[in-house]
């Protein structure tokens, strides 16, 4: 009996070590642009992910979308809040450049929230037709492996299983850049974007 328990513990440790070895990171820097960018792992053939239950909130406050950029996993419900003492509208003309996915959430007063579930991947430019100067973005990642860079462009995506992926970098107003990345432990991927 004692020998059996010892064997089980050894096997468990080996299993945990092998798991740790297969969950790597992708890190690097997005350059050529200034400010925050988004880096995410593109769709993986044959693999689906459960929709997250968390509901991030994008606020409209002081005639500004706050935060300016939100990255979510495909299937996430985002709640749009109006904290201003004026009416705001939220609409987007496209999702990932697909104009057929345009949607208008309507216009609502202070204190109210309206949810929307983003089932399509891609960048969603948020606009308000009450205040045309307002702009924000929801970037919908097809996988749970994504990161928002810091202002210097540095990023790190953690817990990415070992494997080969296509990684895409997005920045407001710039052309997307995608490149293949083989993840085996810690991997590096730098991007240089241009407008």
């Amino acid at each position: 009996m004692k020998r059996t328990l010892t064997m089980m513990m050894v096997m468990a440790v080996i299993a945990m070590m092998s798991l740790a070895a297969s969950a790597g990171t992708i890190s690097g820097k997005v350059s050529g642009v200034s400010g925050e960018s988004v880096v995410y792992v593109d769709a993986i053939a044959g693999k689906t992910f459960p929709a997250p239950t968390a509901k991030p909130v994008i606020d409209q406050k002081g005639l500004v979308f706050q935060p300016h950029i939100v990255v979510v996993e495909q299937g996430t419900t985002v709640e749009f809040l109006n904290s201003d003492k004026v009416a705001h509208n939220v609409f987007w003309p496209s999702v990932g450049g697909n104009k057929k996915l345009t949607h208008n959430l309507g216009t609502w007063p202070q204190g109210e929230k309206r949810p929307f579930k983003f089932d399509n991947a891609g960048a969603v430019p948020l606009l308000c037709n009450v205040h045309p100067e307002m702009a924000g973005y929801v970037v919908v990642s097809p996988t749970p492996y994504f990161a928002l860079t810091d202002k210097s462009g540095e990023y790190k995506i953690e817990n990415v299983p070992d494997g080969s992926y296509t990684v895409t970098a997005w920045h407001e107003g710039a052309k997307n850049q995608s490149k293949p990345v083989a993840v085996a432990g810690d991997s590096k991927a730098d991007f240089t974007l241009s407008k």
Binding site: A87, N89, N104, T107, W108, P109, C128, V130
Partner: peptide, 11 residues
Amino acid sequence: HDVQAAGATGP
């Protein structure tokens, strides 16, 4: 009772 009417496509 607001300053403007809030239509679906804006005020």
